[in-house]
């Protein structure tokens, strides 16, 4: 299976107040049709920036993105518009993701207009997509405006808007973190269903590893703008290889009384991050060695499906 989207060596350096901030230092990823990739990592590690580059909402300062066989890294104009129809985003905050003045009908018709879908098809497609996100009967929702909907209902509209152009790739950046716990499950199920039914490639971003496990077979862990580990989600949770992933997995609380409450295998905090050269995690790593200061560990395969960027060897991994 060839990947639908294939990004290599993505880098994004922001220049703020004369200082360069490498939001993303070096990220490569690929996602095939019907596959879901999760991206986890602590706040500020560059998850959102990576997603925005994949969607061409941010221009990478280095790297290349191939989408469906075409290099989209520097697309403009009509070609970019054609790409936009195929790669859509589900936003984090449903209360802010819809133009407050637009009715649901208008919000859904707009992408169709922009992407040149004949007006004669609009009604049918809007109807179908509202059924897909379970806002039924569609007629009851079409003329409402965002402030008349609850958070969960709004997120369904946001999902519908992303699905209506018939994309091949969906990126969802923390799609349920702003929603109430009782309605999160509904949105996650819709995302899963839509991917299965339409054979979409999906990228999910979240702090929450449990949520990622629910929707993604494969997961990528980021730390300070780099990929530190990648592999099948369940394996990665059951047997995390990178010291950071181990701390991350150990830190997730589970909804049962019996659980591991041992001290986390990590030191310091993000502000103790090492600066230049070597492994970026060494300031917090309980296993840091001399080589970790001298050399940045490359991302390497430890099994056919798993990759990790750490100098540890064999049983230590």
């Amino acid at each position: 299976m060839t990947a639908l989207i294939d990004a290599t060596g993505l880098e994004k350096i922001f220049r703020s107040r004369g200082r360069d901030v490498a939001a993303v230092a070096d990220v490569s990823l690929s996602v095939g049709a019907g596959e879901a990739l999760g991206i986890v990592g602590e706040s500020g590690c560059g998850k959102t920036t990576t997603a925005r580059m994949l969607l061409r909402l941010e221009d990478p300062t280095a790297g290349r993105i191939i989408f469906d066989g075409t290099d989209i890294t520097t697309l403009r104009g009509a070609a970019l518009l054609k790409f936009r129809a195929q790669a859509q985003l589900v936003f984090q905050n449903p209360f802010d993701a819809l133009n407050p003045r637009f009715t649901i009908r208008r919000a859904l018709a707009e992408p169709l207009n922009n992407f040149g879908v004949p007006v004669s098809e609009h009604a049918e497609r809007i109807d179908a997509v509202l059924h897909r996100v379970r806002l039924t009967p569609p007629a009851a929702w079409l003329d409402r405006r965002p402030h008349e909907l609850s958070g969960g209902q709004l997120q369904r509209v946001v999902l519908a808007r992303a699905l209506i152009p018939g994309p091949k790739l969906i990126v969802a950046d923390e799609p349920v973190s702003m929603l109430d716990v009782s309605v999160r499950a509904g949105i996650l199920n819709l995302l899963r269903e839509a991917r299965d039914a339409l054979g979409l490639a999906a990228v999910y971003i979240s702090h929450d590893l449990a949520l990622i496990r629910y929707v993604c077979e494969r997961t990528m862990v980021m730390y300070l703008g780099r990929v530190v580990e990648e592999g099948p989600t369940k394996e990665l949770i059951a047997k995390p290889a990178h010291p950071y992933t181990r701390a991350l997995v150990a830190a997730v609380p589970v909804p049962h009384v019996t659980q591991d409450r041992a001290q986390l295998p990590i030191r310091g905090s993000l502000s103790d991050a090492a600066s230049v050269g070597g492994c970026a995690f060494r300031g917090r790593c309980p296993h840091a060695m001399k080589i970790c200061t001298d050399q940045a560990p490359p991302l390497r395969s430890i099994t056919p499906t798993r990759q990790v960027a750490c100098h540890l060897e064999g049983a230590m991994l």
Partner: peptide
């Protein structure tokens, strides 16, 4: 309802169930 609405880091592949309504 709440106990079925949360994904779990371990355990079987359960289906999450939302509580309908507000």
């Amino acid at each position: 309802g709440l106990t079925h609405a949360f994904p779990d880091l371990y355990g079987d592949d359960m289906t999450l169930v939302p509580i309908d309504g507000t």
